[in-house]
Design a protein around this nucleic acid. Structure first.
Lengths: 196, 196
DNA sequence: GCTATCTTGGACCAATTGTTCCAAGATTGG
DNA sequence: CCAATCTTGGAACAATTGGTCCAAGATAGC
């Protein structure tokens, strides 16, 4: 017999995600969330809990609905190095132009913010997933003879993952996309077997 | 005839720097600064201006007195790749153990925070300086025949600089130092000329 | 030691912080 | 259409935010 929610919790969570993503967790007040979503404080707190809970849920949504698809696209692209190249290309594209330009990556940003254990867990997961995806792509590259000999695929995957953080971070501060592309290309070029 | 300050502005700025470095700009209140320094608000505001000015000065101090010496050590080390290796080793060491463990790099953290133009200028400088230093070290490596052929030194310097951001960022979130070392080593290994 | 000038302590401020609470409203099963 | 149950708007909350202000105190040239 109860009443039912007058809004779509998932759609609202997306708005909240975008807010936290763009402006950061610490610098975004509940008042702004209320303004952006149109919800009242009651509904907000009844549905998502306090600010930290809300942030964690928004971050989780980001990881699941923004990062993961990007990772999946890389995992599904069997071309090896060109796939990784395309991944970085798309990354830098979305980071530096369009709707989300200079927002950085919400997960990357979160590394610099608070030390909440829930957040840390999410970030570790996120990191592991990207590294595993990189490793898969590197294996494909290896199978196709694109890589120079003696490469440690695990370590290289970690290295490329860390590089992605650098790209994300600098893009938020307004770095030149051409410079980011150069940096990413250099990292990939150095993995490439010399065609002789 | 005037009175003179009852404290050492430089020493106080160091305390403030450490506070902002560890806890972040947005999450550190003036009240905490007052508590940590023992200064009164009057002295604080009279000497440094408002919070944002204070933060910028603290960040500038960090760049000059923390980052630059690290860069200089790399620039002065003419060994080439071993010098860069040592740089990353020291970096990971200080980021993951000792007094400043899990503080990350204040400049790296700042990339994820606000978009203040003064801050952005500092960060761009910081970035350029590290990249230039990396390039110098790479030139030394090249001169000593340590690098594989056809490497773009500028682009590689950018790539290694972005990698350093990744290391700094993940260290703040509590990343395993061994994994960071692996990642850094992989990046350097891929630059190395195969000894055959 | 007087006085001009600066510094200092801390009270005070309005604005904002995250959160709570409840009366009024909405919804749905019976 | 009733009533049980949930949601909603918005007032209210104490705590904290960054910042100001001024009387009291300290200093140094004369």
């Amino acid at each position: 017999m109860p009443d039912v929610k007058h809004f779509d919790p998932e759609a609202v969570l997306e708005q909240v995600e975008r807010l936290f993503w763009q402006r950061g967790a610490a610098t975004t007040g509940i008042a702004e969330v209320v303004a952006a979503t149109g919800l009242s404080r009651s509904s907000l707190y009844a549905t998502y809990g306090g600010k930290q809970d809300l942030y964690v849920q928004a971050l989780r949504r980001y990881v699941e609905r923004r990062s993961q698809p990007m990772f999946q696209a890389l995992a599904d692209d069997g071309r090896g190095l060109p796939a990784i190249e395309a991944f970085f290309g798309r990354l830098i594209q979305t980071r530096c132009a369009g709707e989300h330009a200079r927002w950085g990556c919400m997960a990357t940003n979160a590394n610099a913010e608070g030390a909440d254990p829930d957040v840390r867990r999410l970030l570790d997961q996120h990191h592991d997933r990207l590294r595993a995806t990189m490793r898969t792509a590197l294996e494909a590259a290896w199978a196709q003879g694109q890589l120079s000999d003696g490469l440690d695929l695990d370590a290289t995957a970690e290295s490329l993952t860390l590089l992605a953080y650098g790209v994300n971070l600098r893009s938020r501060a307004g770095a030149d996309p051409a410079a980011l592309r150069k940096g990413a290309s250099a990292a990939l070029d150095s993995l490439r077997r010399e065609t002789r």
